[in-house]
Amino acid sequence: MPVTQTPSGPVWTRRTTTEQWASWAGWLAVAVLFVISWQVMNTNTIWSFVDDAPRQAGDLLSRSWPPRWSYVGNLWLPLWDTLNMATLGTLIGTILAVPTAFFAARNTTPSVAILRPVALFVIVASRSINSLIWALLLVAILGPGILAGIIAIALRSIGFIGKLLYEAIEEIDESQVEAIRATGAGGWQVLDYGIVPQVLPAFAGITVFRWDINIRESTILGLVGAGGIGLQLQSSLNVLAWSQVTVIFALILVTVIVSEWVSGKVRTAII
């Protein structure tokens, strides 16, 4: 009870003593964890490098400016590849994610004991591993090029779309499904009339959102050899051509802003 009786009258405190202690202990634990992490993380940090950072930044800036705008001519084809990687990757990812989501959702899965855990594992595995790591693996397997990039994007998208979609499926209004079932509809008809219309807007929103993210991610997949504009970034970084790097960053920025705008428009149009 936050109110305690004392000889001088009742005293109000915000929390009980135990709560107060628990709260302090929580904060203390976070602080200790932070300090320890900080110490461990920085055992090998060379602080003179860190102190030197402002000068390095200035140096970087002076070498990046003015940008070598003429370089932009070399970037259109890689940019096209980048967009294709994102779009085709999203497409393939979506196609694979839809059945995965239906297997993973508690109310639509055909088998709770086997398929559902498998689908959930696929989703979590795909989500845990960044598309850049997928690309790293796939470039080793398939060789450099945008095919590896497309598959990397697709594999990463399965988890994202699959997770959000299966949650949307689990949240549907069951009474609509019940009403369709009561008309004597078969399993596929219940899916088509009772479930799909309810999750379609969520599905479209999720997919477009993922496409937007994929555009961002595909710009850097070239760093590990998966094609697109990141390849140009990598080669410019290798020769320390920072004035070209500026141009590439500017182009990436414009692309990202445009894609964000497009996806925002499409999403408001759908919902």
Binding site: M41, N42, A53, L60, I220, F249
Partner: peptide, 23 residues
């Protein structure tokens, strides 16, 4: 605006290799 990776590239150039740049 930028991917983590892009920002990491810049900070690695500024702070040198290692977890501090990552932090």
């Amino acid at each position: 605006a930028f991917q983590e990776i892009v920002i990491a590239i810049l900070f690695v150039a500024m702070f040198g290799f290692g977890p501090f740049a990552g932090f």
